[in-house]
Design a protein around this nucleic acid. Structure first.
Lengths: 222, 222
DNA sequence: CGCTTTATTGAGGGCGGTCAAAGAGCGTGG
DNA sequence: CCACGCTCTTTGACCGCCCTCAATAAAGCG
């Protein structure tokens, strides 16, 4: 189970939002918790009265079909909010991709505080919707190669456009996010590498060799 | 272009939301407009300062890639709200699937009115997110047959669980929503029909012959 | 270093896409 | 009312992208 975590040792990552002041104020009310790799943060169909922020590590939301097929809804990295995804009950479960520290606060604080925090929750939900819609386009109309390229570009963009990027998740998680199999993901990565688009230092870290080429593959979408 | 529409002739469909009173109050402020089949209601990258409600007809939101590949984000039928999908600018365009009557109101009314309406906007956005997440699961992990079955079941559920259901859209729209081609959609419909799951009276109207079978195909997802 | 887990690569197959043609639906006008 | 032409839908034949199955290689981890 989750362990209590010393608040003082936690590093607060910057928040990617228009006006971060209220967010930071809000999250001083929260409780920090540590989760081990693959540990569940909340379950499918659990009531959704908490919201979360990743302080360290990475989180995935997943949905598993009766026969075991798995779809990852989204990944959340340090600074990201998650858990607003739905109404009274969660449709996806959330798990730590690796050892992570999560800040937890009551959603009712957002709802009942009136004005400022209310808008914050709406704004964050909107951002979630935007990401889900990008995901729909990726899954509905992109080829395997374009999906993997989009994914790598997304990670690169998130890390401030850095050319050397860490992959927080394994190949299986990538596959389940991209609607592919682990073998296809692996093949596409090899293909991108031999095409001098990216270059893998280790299995979990790559360098963007040709940013324009990567963007061209990823963003056929207008 | 859109024509002005006589307010008094408009039939107000019931709203599917927890507490419909504020919604109905809100929408007395709006302006009704008529759109012809395939007419654009708003464009990709247009600023998103209006929200919309379908009074009559049907609407689709679409995203077109540089090479012409098209993805439909969602369909909206009578009673549905749409246009909240994103931040300052729309990521998808919206078009009338067929001749439709749309109620339009300023989003700023929602944002600035404080309290009641604010929560309404959040709630609607949340519902949008939920639908987008279902869509992600469908596109990421369901087979062609399951996608089509899910789609038909969704329509049936929306029309109050009726066994005879009208299809508001053509095959191409279905295909672009389901991430398939028009031929595959057509083949799956024929397959569902020969499997005694559904039965098509006309190309635009079907009857659910075997509701359990349809649900089984559609809802492998837990 | 040995064991387990994870990733890569190869060979072959199937689901869904592509291309093409025939059929159905539907409005317009004779 | 039927003829005509257009669009939409269905069906067939074939192909290719991605999946499946399997073996090897690499990476964690004690």
């Amino acid at each position: 189970m989750a362990l209590a975590y010393d608040y003082n040792e936690v590093h607060f990552p910057p928040i990617r939002q228009r006006n971060s002041e209220p967010v930071n104020a809000l999250f001083r009310m929260g409780l920090t918790m540590a989760f081990a790799k693959d540990e569940e943060i909340y379950g499918q169909d659990e009531s959704a009265d908490l919201i979360y922020r990743v302080l360290e590590g990475a989180v995935r939301t997943t949905r598993v079909m009766a026969d075991g097929r798995r779809q990852i809804g989204e990944f959340y990295l340090a600074g990201d909010l998650f858990g607003l995804e739905t109404g009274p009950r969660h449709r996806f479960s959330a798990e730590a991709v690796r050892d992570s520290v999560i800040l937890v606060i009551k959603a009712s604080v957002l709802r009942s505080s009136g004005g400022e925090f209310e808008r914050l929750g709406w704004e964050a939900t909107r951002q979630e919707l935007e990401r889900a819609q990008e995901h729909v386009l990726l899954l509905g109309r992109k080829t395997a190669c374009e999906r993997v390229a989009s994914f790598l570009k997304g990670l690169s963009d998130k890390s401030g456009g850095d050319l050397v990027v860490d992959l927080p998740m394994g190949r299986q998680d990538m596959a389940d996010y991209l609607g592919l199999t682990i073998e296809t993901v692996s093949r596409m990565l090899s293909q991108l590498q031999s095409g001098r688009i990216v270059s893998f230092c280790t299995t979990r870290r790559f360098r963007v060799v040709n940013p324009e080429g990567l963007a061209r593959l990823a963003d056929q979408a207008q």
